[in-house]
Amino acid sequence: MILRILALATAALFAAPSVQSSDPVSQDSIVITPAALQNGSPFLLTVALHNKASLVTGTWQDHPIVFFPNADHRTWSSLAGVDIETIPGHYPLAIEIDPTQSTHRTLHQELDITEAPYEKVPLTVPDKFVEPDAAALKIIAADKIVKDKAFAHSSPKPAWTSNFLPPLRVAPMSDSFGSQRIFNGKLASVHRGLDYHAKTGTPVSAINSGRVVLAKPLYFEGGCVVIDHGLGLMSVYMHLSKIEVKVDTKVHRGQLIAWSGASGRATGPHLHLGVRWQGSYLDPAKLFQIQLPELR
């Protein structure tokens, strides 16, 4: 209940800016939503142009950014993110407008990244998930190949249809993004997702439209599904008891893709949701609060 109240209270802070794309602007401009960024933050980039453009690209922390246009080609948008391990500081954003034409121009902006407050969370799991034996290490190595293949390619166009939605209709979060996971007394990793309280057999839905690029059990992740939403953005669903989709199938926002469980390295029944952008893990809860432009 508290989390829901906080989410409603802060939703306005993440509302997308109102850009009047039908009216010419006096000069090119960049709007970042939300305006305040922390390590782990996803954000919406909106570029309002004085003149129409045929191509808009960008570079952020060595990540290539591809923008998609509004109907009049004066307003362009893209999703990007700040990796959870980014050190707080100022980082340059460069946006290229019509890079291959005589009208080429470059926009520059410094983005201020602050540190998010992350907690330390002690957990207890079977020892085989903390110190895997030789047989388990072979499985883990094979899983890495499967995951690397799934993450290697993303659609060059956005596949999402509107705002991103939580994967469960009613389920409180049990562990937040960015917490330090201490398994059996040993610091093992940073939590790169959200955990939801969900008894085994709870229906899990796709947080947005896209294409399934992985759907199988893995050692640590248990039953796992990965959906490519385009432009390097992917969602990852872990510890599933049953998977209802296959690789290369297209899914729609809100479609049933699996059932929650306790498979893999899990302390009990729950759903782990991860959001990955070009190899960087982002806070799913903040993604849900961003108002995205409707794709045409």
Rank of each mutant, 00 (worst) to 15 (best):
I2L: 14
L3Q: 14
I5D: 13
A11C: 02
A16Y: 01
S22D: 14
V25Q: 02
S29R: 06
S29V: 01
I30P: 00
I30Q: 06
L37Y: 05
L37V: 05
N39W: 00
L44W: 06
H50W: 00
K52T: 14
S54I: 07
L55V: 05
Q61S: 08
V66M: 10
F68L: 09
P69W: 10
S78G: 04
L79A: 02
T86N: 05
T86D: 09
E96P: 00
I97H: 11
P99Q: 11
L111C: 03
I113S: 01
T114V: 07
A116T: 02
K120E: 15
D127C: 00
E131S: 13
D133P: 03
I139Q: 15
I139D: 03
I140V: 15
I140R: 11
D148S: 08
D148R: 12
A150V: 09
S154E: 03
S155R: 03
P158I: 07
P158V: 03
W160Y: 09
S162T: 08
P167D: 10
V170E: 11
A171F: 08
S176Q: 13
G178Q: 09
R181W: 04
G201D: 13
G201T: 09
S209K: 09
S209T: 13
A215P: 02
P217G: 01
G222T: 05
D228H: 12
D228L: 13
H239G: 02
I243G: 02
V245M: 06
V247H: 04
T249D: 11
H252D: 07
Q255K: 10
Q255C: 05
I257H: 12
A262E: 12
S263G: 06
A266K: 02
P269S: 08
A285Q: 12
L295K: 15
